[in-house]
Design a protein around this nucleic acid. Structure first.
Lengths: 236, 236
DNA sequence: CACAGAGAATAGTAATACTATCAAAAAAAA
DNA sequence: TTTTTTTTGATAGTATTACTATTCTCTGTG
């Protein structure tokens, strides 16, 4: 069984829905390839225009500027992540297993789907790690936040926070722990490759290492003393 | 007693030592003011030149580009942070108190020193929160990392990791926990102001909230079950 | 007072971000 | 069907930015 999943990305991010035309789709697909290849700073609409055999003006018709295009890509990612998370979690009952699944999802690439027209998941994953914070670390966060462009990120964070609270209702910082998990998943993976002294990676790959570290951090934070005592009682 | 502290910032970051001339000092001081005011993306050498009543060429004589200037400012900050940390820690013997002091330092502004010529600490603190990750989230990290431009950051991370291991030698991720503390101090403060839904801030200010969250995270990670058991034994 | 040499100003260029105009094609109205 | 309107992409610009090459101007020695 094959099925198509598409997300309604907030229409305030784009001027024209890139999903609505062939050029639009090419813009997003090639943007992912180029941002991966050049890094967001060296990525320009001119270079993208050449890649899609069109002109800058065409791209400007879809996106106000390259920041909005990056925001679009990340919104797509956050939506997809929340979808995957909800999908994979539905048949799990054990909350601890749910949290483990979340950490795994946050630290591993999406599976390359068989869909004929699809974004490169490996590239997308790397863009999320390296460029995602650039969507909000800007002077006009407050302004663009009013347009709800960060809603998918907040929703994802909220979902994870919900499971955290489900696991330990007494824990005081579910949202902060949730956003810390997401952000730490990114920068620990980045550090483990480019600035390994800031981490404790050994031989294993970045995804596996980050997974282990985050699981340790998460369950130490949540398995309060009382809970562990109870476990101990149960063992006797 | 007054004393001047100055750091030998890695000379590969600048073309000419900005500390060596009056214009050089004005460049750094005004850069901090402007980056705070405009954000790094909208900060340009042209605007900085106008602020110091000089020309772009003068600034290019000191720094290759604006990224290097940001790197210089952050190196100064990381050096100062490590100095402050070592200074404040020397008369503490209790490791737990040391860690508390570290979290406090990471989440609060530097005290505004009385020094006649000094950088604006409030601005500097905000730049660290918003712009610091932009120093390494670039395509040429590997290249610039070879020139040891991240050494002060790694040193700071290493020092904190040392104390973490001192507190709990069995803990497996001292470096990752250390870099996570530093990074989380930044983004939780940022989120608590601009995207509060990603956190659990209430009325208290961003510094105080982040302090509480980080202390909780840190000691839960380090106070392994065995340690807590021992504490309990001691209480009896 | 000549002059070497460092430091800063002048005057550029190439690339980037973005806009205004134009023309062709598609859709809607007459 | 014909005319009009709208949509779409292409062309050609401008202002700003990042950076360089060259010229000028001090300052200190002999």
């Amino acid at each position: 069984m094959e099925f198509q999943v598409s997300f309604r990305v907030n229409d305030k991010i784009y001027l024209r829905d890139p999903e609505s035309s062939e050029v639009g789709k090419q813009i997003v697909k090639n943007a992912i390839d180029l941002i991966y290849e050049l890094g967001f700073e060296h990525f320009t609409f001119k270079k993208l225009a050449i890649a899609i055999h069109s002109t800058e003006a065409t791209i400007y018709r879809y996106f106000e500027n390259k920041h909005r295009l990056l925001l679009y890509i990340l919104n797509w990612y956050w939506c997809y992540m929340e979808f995957l998370l909800m999908f994979k979690l539905q048949n799990k009952t054990d909350t601890r297993e749910k949290l483990k699944m979340i950490v795994h999802l946050l630290t591993h690439e999406f599976p390359e789907s068989s869909g004929q027209f699809d974004y490169n998941k490996k590239y997308l994953n790397q863009i999320v790690i390296v460029e995602s914070s650039k969507t909000y670390l800007v002077k006009d966060v407050t302004e663009i936040n009013k347009k709800e462009v960060f809603k998918p990120y907040k929703d994802l964070c909220g979902q994870i926070a919900r499971i955290i609270s489900e696991y330990n209702p007494a824990y005081s910082y579910p949202n902060s722990l949730s956003s810390t998990l997401i952000e730490t998943a990114h920068h620990q993976q980045f550090f483990s490759v480019y600035l390994p002294k800031l981490t404790d990676v050994t031989a294993v790959n970045r995804a596996e290492f980050t997974n282990l570290f985050l699981e340790n951090l998460l369950f130490n934070a949540l398995d309060a003393f009382e809970l562990r005592m109870k476990e101990l009682e149960g063992m006797k």
